[in-house]
Design a protein around this nucleic acid. Structure first.
Lengths: 215, 215
DNA sequence: ATAAAAAACAGGAAAAACACCCTTTTAAAA
DNA sequence: TTTTAAAAGGGTGTTTTTCCTGTTTTTTAT
């Protein structure tokens, strides 16, 4: 039977050891080593040996956190899957980790059974996301968005913002919209106030946040 | 034991009957009725009776398709969960259904076991998404983008771009980076050429495209 | 038809952004 | 240590943006 080796990256020694105990208790897994942060993991790896079959990754760590570590892994060892195991249950952390290529995301209050199931599934199917993650990211797609504010933007203003995002000058935008440059000034001034931004950059960022323009 | 009643909406009679057979074989479920499209479902509902505990919804149907039906359900009977059961495995269909509030998404080539597990989970946890869906939407977040070009941007230039995205002026950016405004001019000029953009807006759009800044 | 409101437009000034060419400082290599 | 390349800093002028205070035109409501 194949035995998979696992590296644990967690700055809390107690947690790290507890997890290691759980994993080592299973015949199909063994803990290759435990380290306290990403930097230590990188040092282990750089020896060209000590490459585990999977990395369990905490997020909040000193020196080199889970995001940086995940990015480093994806960059240098894309064939080594990593799974987040963290207390962070906020959307931002989850999405960030998945974008970095995490093959799984576990919240630290899972029971030991789920941890082992998760590891199994990652090796078998290539991924495992705990219910909270699935719920947050898939189920919440259907949520009505809070809509930052009740902004009633005019058609013209929407069109204007989209054109701003295309690197056009106001003169060019005016031509494109068949209005005077001074009118365009008006659109801009109104939007600066409505959206509470200081310059064109703010308009662009706002437009993208709200999905008004393709990125 | 509570028995849950289920409505099946599918224009393929064979498929519909097969599914009904599977469901009726389980003691905890029963098929309340089968209809051939969304319009027929609406007619059933409008009688104020015949409200099932869950709706199994195909997408490709004549007269009133699965999307329209899902939207109608979410609008008029948000308390009745609906689960897509369809051959459509494309991202657009999946996302569209989830946005409409589908509590689950199943591809028609699943085995009968998974169908029953899925129904169980929806009643127990509130949602169930088949692996393909999870994989597509979560796993694919981590896909590497085509990477427009091999750009070797300096650390300073990255930092500079990020600051540009915060609505700072170049003077402010210079202060934040502890360099002269003229040096910042240099970063900008170099980046304009490297990234082939005309102004600050181009930098922002580029940075966002490549995920260098949070949106 | 007329008053009120909204949109379009204007002038001008100050600040910021952009372009171009050039010098000094720093860091790396020979 | 000398040579070289890269990074940082500088001068100057043009264009664009931003921020005012207005006026004219168009729409809307009464």
């Amino acid at each position: 039977m194949t035995q998979y080796s696992i590296a644990i990256v967690d700055d809390h020694q107690i947690v790290s050891e507890a997890i290691a105990g759980l994993i080592n208790a299973m015949p199909q897994f063994n803990v290759l080593y435990e380290v306290r942060n990403g930097r230590e993991l990188v040092n282990k790896f750089s020896g060209k040996k000590n490459i585990p079959d999977l990395v369990l990754l905490d997020i909040n760590m000193p020196i080199m956190n889970g995001f940086e570590t995940g990015a480093w892994l994806q960059e240098h060892y894309p064939e080594v899957p990593f799974v987040a195991l963290t207390m962070n249950d906020d959307d931002e952390s989850i999405i960030k980790m998945l974008r970095l290529g995490a093959k799984g995301y576990l919240i630290k209050d899972i029971d030991s059974d789920e941890l082992l199931v998760a590891l199994d599934e990652v090796f078998k199917k290539g991924f495992y996301y705990t219910d909270l993650v699935t719920s947050k990211l898939l189920h919440n797609l259907g949520e009505k968005k809070p809509a930052v504010k009740e902004l009633d933007l005019k058609e013209k203003e929407m069109e204007f913002i989209k054109l701003v995002c295309t690197e056009m000058t106001y003169r060019e935008i005016a031509e494109a919209m068949y209005v005077s440059p001074k009118t365009v000034d008006g659109y801009r001034d109104a939007l600066f106030q409505k959206l509470d931004v200081k310059n064109r950059i703010g308009l662009v960022m706002f437009a993208i946040k709200n999905g008004w323009v393709e990125v």
